[in-house]
């Protein structure tokens, strides 16, 4: 993967707006944002209602994902372009999800909704309807998804990258500062994890930094590019953003997103937790 194959610009989206094989999909944390205005032709995925199992804490499964995309009119050979608010956090999460279920051509709109709005590009509240398809998701690719036992075994062995804010890493906050404080039972981070906030990978306008800046960022923070890497955050959406940077833009092999993330780890019995600004010992 590379920046060229994984990212598209706003101009590219404008140039392809009549291309029937390009499907724009908006995914937001604030699921009402789409209804107030979206890029013309874009459909919406609700990260909570559409992409999560409604009983267990887990994804929708392969069959559910197939049914979801069939109903929304997405074909297996479509080019799917994802974008959203919050600097593309949830769009990156959905991107990772499409990759997990084996979709061939997925892109992220660089800068997402924010860059689009700051450029005063057009948004519409027109209803979008696509004809149903027969989408077929593949077996989930667990090469890009980490579970807790693997994370525990990775302490002191693989690169662990904590992409939350410094205050969440240190244990001074349990959740991003625009959300009420809630979730995990304990604050802190997984011992030996490097603190590399997702935001360091993005410019103020939400676009991704240049490749050489990104490589320097992770290398200077202690990521050994010769080792496997697991990224985590609070619920797996910001770490999907960092997974995208490492795996899709920089083309690193063996990068996984731990979507259980801190809400799972910080509530587990029998796992180590480090407090403060230092990574801590294995």
């Amino acid at each position: 993967m590379s920046r060229e194959s994984a990212l598209v610009s706003a101009d590219w989206v404008e140039e392809h707006k009549t291309d029937e094989n390009v499907v724009l999909i908006e995914v937001d944390e604030d699921v009402s944002a789409y209804d107030a205005g979206h890029i013309a032709g874009a459909i919406k995925l609700d990260w909570r209602a559409d992409l999560q199992d409604q009983v267990r804490r887990d994804f929708v499964n392969q069959e559910q994902f197939s049914a979801l995309l069939s109903g929304r009119g997405v074909k297996n050979d479509d080019t799917v372009v994802l974008y959203g608010g919050n600097n593309n956090w949830f769009a990156a999460y959905a991107y990772w999800y499409f990759k997990l279920y084996g979709h061939g051509d997925v892109r992220l709109l660089d800068g997402g909704r924010k860059r689009w709005e700051l450029d005063s590009r057009e948004l519409t509240d027109d209803a979008v309807k696509r004809d149903a398809t027969a989408y077929s998701a593949k077996e989930p690719d667990l090469n890009i998804r980490a579970f807790r036992d693997e994370v525990k075994d990775a302490i002191g062995v693989k690169n662990l990258v904590d992409v939350r804010s410094p205050d969440e890493y240190a244990g001074r906050l349990l959740a991003p500062a625009h959300l009420p404080q809630e979730q995990a039972q304990r604050a802190g981070h997984i011992p030996t994890a490097a603190s590399i906030p997702w935001s360091k990978a993005a410019n103020d306008d939400g676009t991704f930094r240049a490749d050489d800046e990104l490589k320097t960022l992770y290398a200077d923070a202690g990521v050994d590019f010769g080792k496997d890497t697991i990224a985590y955050c609070r619920i797996g959406e910001r770490s999907a953003h960092t997974w995208f940077v490492l795996h899709e833009i920089l083309g690193q092999a063996n990068v996984k997103n731990y979507d259980g993330s801190w809400t799972e780890w910080g509530s587990l019995v029998g796992v180590p937790v480090a407090l403060g600004d230092e990574p801590g010992e294995a």
Partner: peptide, 14 residues
Amino acid sequence: RLLDSSGEFTAEVP
């Protein structure tokens, strides 16, 4: 955008 005392990004809302 909410930046902490070191200038690090902490949160952002529209």
